[in-house]
Every structure is written in C-alpha cells, then in structure tokens.
Design a protein around this nucleic acid. Structure first.
Length: 153
DNA sequence: GCCAACGTTGGC
DNA sequence: GCCAACGTTGGC
C-alpha cells in the first residue's frame, strides 16, 4: 500500500533523504497514536511513499521514497537529549516506532497542497480530509494521479 | 505570527 | 468516563 509521510523541510527534507543514499534514513519522531498504528501495523518493506513538506511556504508533495525497514522501536524516545524524548515510554514496551526509508525520486514539479485541493480526483485524499495526520495511506489511484500531476507518471 | 482543528492530560 | 485545560499541527 502506498503512503504519504509528512516532514517539515527545516527539520528533514527530501534533499536530506537523497543525501542519505541507498541505505536510507530513519523516519522517527512520530508521536501520534494513529500515525504510530499505521507505521507499526500496516507500513511494509517495499511500500512506496510520497514525501510531503509541511509547515513551509509551499506545502507540497516533493518526492517519492521506499520503505526499506519495517517498524522497530524509535530510539529517540529513550534519549533524554532528543527532541522526541518520551519519559513515559517503558523500555520493555516501547510506545513509539520508526521505519527506514530510502530516496527514490525528487519531483521536478512538486505537487502543492493547493493543486491537490483543486483536483477533484484527489478530494478523498486524507491530506485534504484530515489535514494533520503525519503518516497516512494513499490509494493506488491517488498515487498515480499525484505523479501524473508532477509530470513523472 | 495567528488561530482553527484536534489530540492529550488529568482532576473529579 | 467526562470534559475543561492545555499543547501541537500546520495552513494561511
């Protein structure tokens, strides 16, 4: 199943992901139960990911990625120095998980939230209907349509 | 920077 | 288990 992962480009951008190379990078810091459940229960190795930049000048889908490692305990939850430290998460029953993803493409023409909202074919995207979820499922049709809009289909 | 939407916390 | 207070997300 395809997914959309959100990231603030100031913190971690598609360029940062590209720099990480083939090995990919850990997608951590997810601290929302619904997003966590998707990550833990449904995101599988080999799944395709739309990378979305949020909280920036032009919120947009900016690239694609692939899941290379399925859910494992997010180490930042146990690190008191980390931004996403969670003192309430038991060591023997970690509350939060991370996955690893690798860069696949950077879109020549990012598909803005504005363009997505303007496209009736994408009216059902979770991005539109439930804006704030940071890990969300995308249908095959939505995936194809977003890439078509990017000129990468 | 504002603020609406929505998630989480904690007293009762 | 309710719900008010509070915190966060994220578009604008």
């Amino acid at each position: 199943m395809p997914w959309l992962f959100k990231s603030e480009p100031d913190a971690f951008s598609i360029d940062d992901l590209k720099k990480a190379g083939k090995k990919g990078e850990r997608w951590d810091g997810i601290r929302n139960y619904q997003a966590r459940n998707f990550l833990r229960d449904d995101v599988r190795k080999g799944d395709d990911v739309l990378v979305y930049h949020s909280n920036c000048k032009v919120p947009a889908v900016v690239g694609t990625a692939r899941v290379v490692r399925e859910a494992y305990p997010d180490p930042t939850q146990f690190d008191p120095e980390a931004k996403y430290y969670d003192p309430r998460s038991p060591l023997d029953n970690p509350r939060w998980v991370a996955v690893d993803i690798t860069h696949v493409s950077t879109l020549r023409h990012p598909v803005s939230l504005q363009a997505i909202k303007a496209n009736p074919a994408l009216a059902d995207m979770v991005l539109v209907s439930r804006g704030r979820l940071s890990i969300q499922p995308v249908t095959e049709q939505q995936w194809a349509e977003v890439l078509r809009m990017a000129g990468n289909a």
